Amino acid sequence: MHATWHLPNGTTRTETVKPGQSLMEAAVAHNIPGVIGECGGSLSCATCHVVVDPAWAARTGTASAFEDDMLDVTDVDRQPTSRLSCQIRMTEALDGLILHVPG
């Protein structure tokens, strides 16, 4: 399965993501710039903030109340489809997912 990250500099990176792997784990493993995952996916930071492409937003689901609160403290203003990538796990339904890394 694959996901594509659109980077702030205008480039894109498409990488393999294992089933069940979080998109933060995949981004860190593939050295995607701008996705840090400082807390390791424990939902205690916002360094894995991404903006889900609107075409994919319904499939990734909505943020939990706690994730929603964490999105309020991101370095870059949140967008309507902002998520913490540690909270999105790869499934067959997300194969081809497009994420935007905020600048």
Score class of each variant (00 low, 15 high):
1 M>V: 09
1 M>F: 07
2 H>N: 15
2 H>V: 15
3 A>F: 04
3 A>C: 10
4 T>M: 01
5 W>D: 03
6 H>P: 00
6 H>M: 06
6 H>F: 02
7 L>H: 11
8 P>H: 09
8 P>I: 08
9 N>V: 08
10 G>L: 06
11 T>Q: 14
13 R>K: 08
14 T>W: 03
14 T>G: 08
15 E>T: 13
15 E>F: 07
16 T>G: 03
17 V>I: 12
18 K>G: 04
18 K>V: 12
19 P>M: 08
19 P>C: 04
20 G>V: 09
20 G>F: 02
21 Q>V: 09
22 S>P: 05
22 S>A: 07
22 S>C: 02
23 L>V: 02
24 M>K: 05
25 E>D: 14
25 E>A: 15
27 A>F: 14
27 A>Q: 13
30 H>S: 13
30 H>I: 07
30 H>Y: 05
33 P>T: 00
34 G>N: 07
34 G>L: 09
35 V>S: 04
35 V>P: 00
37 G>N: 10
37 G>R: 11
37 G>W: 12
37 G>P: 05
38 E>C: 09
39 C>H: 10
39 C>E: 12
39 C>K: 08
40 G>S: 13
41 G>Y: 06
42 S>H: 14
42 S>K: 13
43 L>C: 15
44 S>P: 03
44 S>V: 13
45 C>V: 12
47 T>E: 11
48 C>M: 10
50 V>M: 01
50 V>P: 06
51 V>W: 05
51 V>P: 05
52 V>C: 03
52 V>G: 10
52 V>Q: 05
52 V>L: 10
53 D>K: 04
53 D>L: 00
54 P>N: 00
55 A>C: 03
55 A>F: 01
56 W>L: 13
56 W>G: 12
57 A>Y: 03
58 A>Q: 10
58 A>C: 03
58 A>R: 10
60 T>R: 09
60 T>I: 14
61 G>M: 04
63 A>G: 02
64 S>W: 00
64 S>M: 02
66 F>A: 15
67 E>M: 06
67 E>R: 01
67 E>I: 10
68 D>A: 15
68 D>V: 09
68 D>F: 08
68 D>R: 11
70 M>E: 07
71 L>W: 04
71 L>R: 10
72 D>G: 10
72 D>L: 09
72 D>P: 04
75 D>K: 11
76 V>G: 05
76 V>C: 06
77 D>M: 03
77 D>V: 02
77 D>S: 09
78 R>K: 14
80 P>R: 00
80 P>W: 00
81 T>Q: 06
81 T>E: 01
82 S>W: 01
82 S>F: 04
82 S>M: 00
82 S>L: 00
83 R>M: 09
85 S>P: 00
85 S>V: 01
87 Q>R: 13
88 I>E: 01
89 R>Y: 14
89 R>A: 15
90 M>K: 01
92 E>Q: 13
92 E>L: 13
93 A>I: 11
93 A>S: 14
93 A>D: 14
93 A>V: 14
94 L>F: 05
94 L>R: 02
94 L>G: 04
95 D>V: 07
95 D>G: 04
97 L>K: 00
97 L>P: 01
98 I>V: 15
98 I>M: 07
98 I>H: 08
100 H>V: 14
100 H>N: 15
101 V>L: 07
102 P>M: 08
102 P>V: 13
103 G>K: 05
